[in-house]
Write a protein that binds this DNA or RNA. Structure first.
Lengths: 188, 188
DNA sequence: CGGCAATTGTCGGATAAACAACATAGGAGA
DNA sequence: TCTCCTATGTTGTTTATCCGACAATTGCCG
């Protein structure tokens, strides 16, 4: 498992409700207007909560986007059981595929590509790739897991973004297979 | 319009949420277990609210059922724009049809026919029929609207229930047409 | 019959959410 | 430029909900 915030299973039902309403409203508005055009007011109105309540849970809309992205990406990883695994070439290949599809889907899902949005998703996703690879490496007792993980994470994200930008993309699996050695070499 | 509780349009969003959750949980449980087998505990758990909160809104599950039935029947009336109309034979016929279908649908919708449930639905529905007919009669300036309305309401409900009990029911419209004179005679 | 488990209403105290108000900042248009 | 309008964070107060507990009731099983 990824290092998890020790979520207390028994949470006040009021905060569960509020968070759920906020997330729901946020994802709706994200699809409708895009991230830049959407205000905290909008979220509060749509979720039918008080605006002050929003600030009791998130410092601003950027923090909400961060959390949303983290959770979505983590869910994607866990769906493919990547977070519990040790390092292997197969897992690395699967990770690359996951990142490619996640970025592609985020770009469809959100309205238009926006500066704020793009840099934020980059940071969050790259950070998580790095955490995962660090975990893999430290499980093997590798020396200097941080530097190797940093390089690999940046490389993977950059490659994935490049793939997404292409006009006529090759199939994800083929692309992943192609770039695999570029990343795997430094992790051996 | 029927005499309406002057619902303040701006209601605390918390109570809107809570009531909505309670109603939702209640109707689910009603369909699953029936009214008799369902406890306040069940409702609170399903709705994910505290049991004490339920009692802040309803004295017991019977009150909740009453409100639910009133609202459902009123909605049915308003859908057919019966509540805003004056008296006429057409409206009376439509009222009879409405009652028949409402009782029939309630019996399907709820699990098994139960004593508590049946007497409660009878009371609530009959009371509303009576209110509506009283309104019709008083709008025409009729003398003694209460006694005539009482008789008509009981008659309509009894006839409708009889129709529902039949093994091979005739079409509702035919039945309504048939019994119409039994009721209309006293309202002229 | 007697316990035993579950449900019921109700209470007091703790806490999240609502609400109204405020100062601030930024954008649109005269 | 100035004005108007809207969004932003933040605060203090009030209110609805949560939570744990309690005695009383009910129904069921041995």
């Amino acid at each position: 498992m990824l290092p998890n915030a020790p979520t207390p299973e028994k949470l006040d039902p009021r905060v569960k409700r509020t968070r759920s309403l906020i997330r729901q409203a946020f994802s709706e508005l994200l699809a409708e207007k895009g991230f830049g055009a959407l205000s905290v007011q909008d979220i509060a109105e749509r979720a039918e909560i008080n605006r002050a309540t929003f600030y009791a849970h998130y410092p601003d809309k950027f923090a909400l986007l961060k959390e949303t992205l983290r959770q979505a990406f983590r869910a994607e990883l866990e769906k493919r059981t990547l977070s519990a695994c040790h390092y292997s070439e197969d897992n690395l290949r699967a990770l690359i595929v996951t990142v490619c599809e996640f970025i592609a889907r985020s770009n469809e899902h959100c309205k238009a590509s926006e500066q704020q949005f793009d840099s934020l998703i980059e940071n969050q996703v790259r950070r998580q790739i790095q955490e995962l690879i660090e975990l893999w490496l430290s499980q093997r007792g590798a020396a200097q897991p941080q530097t190797a993980a940093t390089a690999a994470a940046w490389a993977i994200y950059g490659l994935a973004e490049g793939w997404v930008r292409q006009k006529n993309r090759p199939p994800v699996e083929a692309f992943a297979e192609q770039v695999l050695p570029l990343v795997a070499g430094n992790l051996k």
